[in-house]
């Protein structure tokens, strides 16, 4: 059981601590996609962290839309700490989605645009 090697994990006490800025910064700094993983729906240790994170993801998806960055690059999943297998599956799924989208336009466009110049 393993997850794809190109995934980088940022550990947080609760997925609710991840704000829009964290997602944006990750993308801005070279991540091709961001996947938030929080506890199961209704099972937040802190009562509502995962619920808030889900709404926040929607918000950031809209921001990405304004930037013409594919919304599919951002996803949120609810996986409990005991479900390592599910985590790996999700990690693979997310990697596949992002891979099929290709590198984030941030990189490709920057390169092609600078070539045009």
């Amino acid at each position: 059981m393993q997850y794809p090697s190109n995934i980088r994990i940022v550990k947080v006490p609760c997925i609710g601590t991840i704000g829009a800025i964290h997602i944006l910064k990750a993308l801005e700094n070279g991540a091709d996609g961001v996947c938030l993983v929080g506890c199961s729906e209704g099972k937040c240790e802190y009562s509502s962290g995962n619920y808030r994170a889900r709404k926040r993801v929607q918000y950031v998806k809209n921001l990405l839309g304004k930037l013409s960055i594919e919304k599919e690059r951002l996803e949120i999943y609810n996986i409990s700490a005991g479900e390592a297998r599910k985590f790996c599956e999700v990690a693979r799924e997310v990697t596949e989605t992002v891979r099929s989208l290709g590198p984030i336009p941030l990189k490709t466009k920057a390169i092609s645009n600078s070539k045009e110049e």
Binding site: E28, L63, N113
Partner: peptide, 20 residues
């Protein structure tokens, strides 16, 4: 400040995509 950071990040990304 929270929105400043978000907007700044978006602008940077947008400019980067435009190659500027």
């Amino acid at each position: 400040m929270r929105e400043v950071e978000i907007l700044a990040s978006m602008i940077r990304m947008d400019r980067k995509m435009a190659g500027q």
